[in-house]
Design a protein around this nucleic acid. Structure first.
Lengths: 220, 220
DNA sequence: ACCTGAACACCGTTCAAGT
DNA sequence: ACCTGAACACCGTTCAAGT
């Protein structure tokens, strides 16, 4: 923020600011790197190389790799769709928000500890997301005292479900030890949902519907 | 397993086997290291040092650090209490299991991706845990086809909640940007639960009760 | 203010050489 | 079969020196 402003002051009028190094450019380059090669490729030196700069130069704009991840996380948070809270019934809005939230971060699993463990301070997009959700809860009649707990509970489910999206399809294949777990092996073999959903989506839909229905009854 | 047996063959009668290097000893040493200094201290070289051995020696017993984490995870799974599924009503049993599961892994967050993403093949304790839970669901009248989805949904919530246990208490402090999210800031300020629970426990209780109640209605 | 280049203290893993 | 010691290809981060 501060660095960006300082630069804006030095910038000559009419010159496109896009080439200058700053938090926004670094975040953009990080997202590009991740979308091309995954999080194993998001190292300070590879990121620096993609910006034609020495690794140590990054530390003029970012305190640590943690802070970089924080920037990336916050920028992704803008992709979470909260629009349903404006004009749809609470349960439908929660469902759409939750689906969108899971889908955004299922491709960014290493950011989940960042969201779950780091304070929202100075994460403007994250704050906007929470604001929209909170307003939706208030509009639906939720008491202020319980809204954060409900959001945290939903988020916990969403984070766990984001991992599940990336699980291999044979994650429950019991292998040679199958005989020691006959009931479980049988349940795995008979796993099936009414529709044409994949396993992760089926579990997510079931859990989300249950969670929403259960929360709705405690809304009183 | 194979290595342990080979060693057992070589071992002289009457000699305590505890000093020999093998998967069980390595796992035990890893847990000791983690409980003393956390996961940042669980490196191959520190683990080797704690066993008075060269780092490369570990690779005679473990294919990679991933496999080591798998061993640690599986051994921790034995601590998850599934006993309530034997003699208590389904909803109570699920609640006790979920609490125990969350409590065990809230001190082992780096293992959550391991549980969520790695096949259960050759994870005997993990398999036993799933077997006990599945039997509990069957006894309660669940149809085989939906049991795995229900367990996955519960696990997703449990994993997310394990992160939440470790969140700092000021995680939702909006900082300087609070003015941009007034409804959220107010909800954070007014957050409170009836009882004497901490924030993480309050959200976990609320979500778990909702999830269990919601799942119970789809049980039919 | 912002960059480079060298350096530091680590990582996980491989592999020839020993016993 | 199992170990050691050296080596490899990396990490994130710091810091003096430049402009």
């Amino acid at each position: 923020m501060k660095a960006a402003k300082a630069k804006a002051g030095r910038r000559r009028a009419g010159r496109p600011p896009l080439a200058l190094l700053g938090p926004a450019q670094i975040t953009r380059a990080a997202l590009k790197l991740v979308s091309r090669d995954g999080y194993k490729a998001l190292t300070m030196s590879k990121l620096a190389k993609s910006l034609n700069v020495a690794p140590s130069a990054l530390y003029n704009h970012v305190r640590s790799k943690q802070e970089l991840l924080r920037l990336v996380e916050d920028s992704l948070m803008a992709r979470v769709d909260v629009s349903a809270f404006l004009d749809q019934p609470w349960d439908q809005a929660v469902s759409k928000w939750a689906h969108s939230y899971r889908d955004v971060f299922s491709s960014h699993l290493p950011l989940i500890p960042v969201i779950a463990l780091l304070p929202v301070t100075n994460a403007p997009q994250t704050l906007l997301m929470y604001e929209a959700v909170t307003e939706g809860f208030l509009r639906a009649g939720w008491r202020s005292a319980r809204i954060i707990d409900a959001i945290v509970a939903l988020e916990s489910f969403i984070f766990g479900s984001a991992y599940d999206v990336n699980a291999p399809s044979d994650i429950f294949a019991p292998g040679e030890l199958g005989a020691t777990a006959p009931a479980f092996s049988s349940a795995v073999a008979h796993r099936s949902n009414a529709g044409q959903l994949n396993d992760a989506d089926a579990a997510f839909s079931l859990g989300l519907a249950a969670l929403i229905a259960g929360l709705a009854t405690t809304l009183v």
